[in-house]
Amino acid sequence: MTWDASLLWQFDLLILPMVIICAIAALSFKDLVSCAVISGAFSFLMCLLWTEMLAVDVAFTEAAVGAGVSTVLLLGTALHVKRKSKD
């Protein structure tokens, strides 16, 4: 199998490490509000990834839902509970 320029694999190589870094960061910060915001960034990177993989409808949904509504819901909860986490 030979690789093909039409796959946009350069974006793939670039975005996936950032996604993994965001995933680790979202779980390791002690401030829960930071975790919520980082998970929003994670969703947005995922959205870029899906545009690159030709799934435009999924990307659109993720941009509206993941980066928008679910971040707001996580933020709302993080501000209502004790903001500092032990681990």
Binding site: D57, A59, F60, T61, A64, G68, V69
Partner: peptide
């Protein structure tokens, strides 16, 4: 075009 009920509903909600 990309879009539909789910996406439009979420944008209206947001």
């Amino acid at each position: 075009s990309p879009g539909g009920g789910f996406q439009g509903g979420v944008i209206l909600g947001s």
